[in-house]
Design a protein around this nucleic acid. Sequence first.
DNA 1: ATCGTTCACTTTAACGATCAACTTCGAGGT
DNA 2: ACCTCGAAGTTGATCGTTAAAGTGAACGAT
Lengths: 348, 348
Amino acid sequence: MAGEGGSSVTMKTLAERLGVSVTTISNAYSKPDRLSPELREQILSEAKLVGYCGPNAAGRALRSGKTDVCGFLFGGELAEAFADPYTVAFLAGLSETVERFGASVLLLRAPGDGEQAEEQLLQRAAIDAIVTCSPSSDHPGTRALAARGVRVVGAQDAESGDWVTINDTKAGRLVGKHLAGLGHRRIVVIVPGFAPEGEVVSLPADGSGCSRFAAERIRGLREKLPDASITVVCGGWKPKPAGRLAAAHVLDVQDRPTAIVALSDALALGVWDAARERGLTPGRDLSIVGFDDIPDAGFIGLTTVRQPITDKGRLAGRLAMDPDYPQRQITLPIELVVRSSTGPAPKN
Amino acid sequence: MAGEGGSSVTMKTLAERLGVSVTTISNAYSKPDRLSPELREQILSEAKLVGYCGPNAAGRALRSGKTDVCGFLFGGELAEAFADPYTVAFLAGLSETVERFGASVLLLRAPGDGEQAEEQLLQRAAIDAIVTCSPSSDHPGTRALAARGVRVVGAQDAESGDWVTINDTKAGRLVGKHLAGLGHRRIVVIVPGFAPEGEVVSLPADGSGCSRFAAERIRGLREKLPDASITVVCGGWKPKPAGRLAAAHVLDVQDRPTAIVALSDALALGVWDAARERGLTPGRDLSIVGFDDIPDAGFIGLTTVRQPITDKGRLAGRLAMDPDYPQRQITLPIELVVRSSTGPAPKN
DNA sequence: ATCGTTCACTTTAACGATCAACTTCGAGGT
DNA sequence: ACCTCGAAGTTGATCGTTAAAGTGAACGAT
């Protein structure tokens, strides 16, 4: 009937058929109280008849500057985002709120250095606001967005602007205190980050060279473990393999650590595998601690620092969609959940 | 420096500052070979200087009709999509491919009957293509999109157009044959679908009243179990609770079934819980079968019909982004994975 | 009778970019 | 000297919508 490929029924079509102005058609959709109910009804039924399905998004966005889309920025391939339970839980909360505000979520990838194509994709995104999940909200691409008038909400590592985070130093302290109490003195911290494929990189133990949140957790940890030997290593971005690789690297030496602190549960899962592969029982031969408290953590008995992940997503969505929400910088509560993966340091 | 809230540096700004035409600026971004490299360099550096960050998405989309966005349509609240491992795995594949085509994924919710607001959101979405995950691609909203020129790819229950699916009848047969061989004759099928909150609905055993894919699986099942008593029930959309509720309903009667077939692993997980709550050991006292083979299925030992979920997402993305891909209707291979959740029917 | 208002629309002018069709200029072939 | 051709730009129209300002009629208040 109507169109075949790309039908071009526009407001103009309707306006001509009904003998009214285009603005009136527009109002029928966007400002129903500006025209008589009868006319509006007539317009809507004519629309159905000719197969007009509402204002064109591009035209609307161009003129009004609103897109009803909230971006979600992830610092890696999107496929990885879905492989990470933390991110999935966050997205659940985010999309719930965004949906409630009558908007949709656009998944975007943060461009790495020199990734032209990705950079363009991010800059060209038609969005009203963006929530940055793993990369810092001080990322250069993000700055450009902010300059363009896009509201930016950081959900990790934000230094300025709007954010929803946890107190990472405190999180580190919780773990430090717990491990100190169990007598651990040889500790390895595994952080997410860049490492050449298949290699493990050692980093300064003061947390420099790590992302901000990592540095703060390490700081908190060291505060409560002043006389412990703490090493920081990194096995890459992809959490589970990175955790496994890094753990393998530090477990296959003479003075192996008595505890491994992985900066996310997803990393810790990889550590877990590495431990089991070596016949080490978590909690007895090797203590393992994670962060986040993803569902699997409870399942396998991983000691971790819980944060309300889905709530974080919900709040981030709120800040993104509602410019009038009063509290623009939110710190969420955290809590140490002790399970079977930690125990007294084995004597050697 | 440049703008404060919504800076308005456009191509025109650049054109005037450099004394060239707007089209040339446009070409510098979209068609680099249409101008001299030197001029292009000059334009890009001036852009950086004044804080111009690439063509505005809305303007571009309006004029060219391209958005570089692929929609993902889910038939329920998006938060639920993230709670369902099947959907998450599918999204991982989808976004991987879409990303490779230089586009992004927009998460959309399929409007239910009479959901005005949602309907508008879907119709107004600025997308080039859309992949329909749980709702049928014959959904009314989807038809409207197709009329607008949006490429539609069905990833379940598609009857026409482009799709990527499995052979659901065959899937049903695989399960039917397996259960027949184990001597099961009293079987309950749990389907996803609408049920009043907290209630369990009985449906015709021929699969009518179910979604298409469910009807076909039931058909295949019955084919291999001609003399069995098969009952079909539904406990709602939210998989795990629905499975638990429906299973509870059919397990608390005198002649309880010896096998429960849940049409997704997520549903089966709920059945599992219901069984354990009643002291029934899956595989001994009650056989449980799922579909999909999500990661947790392997973990707990659920017998299921495996389908390559992530590949399905990848292919759906391919069809959505590449109109020239020759094969437009793809049936993926499936395979019965027998684990410990099924066993011989207990004699009674 | 006059004024101010409200109602229900219309008119005009963008929003930012891209496309199709031209121009200009110099190089190369015959 | 004449014609063709490609490279490198330009011009003008247009995509579909909405904001802002304007029109004319009806109505109540003064």
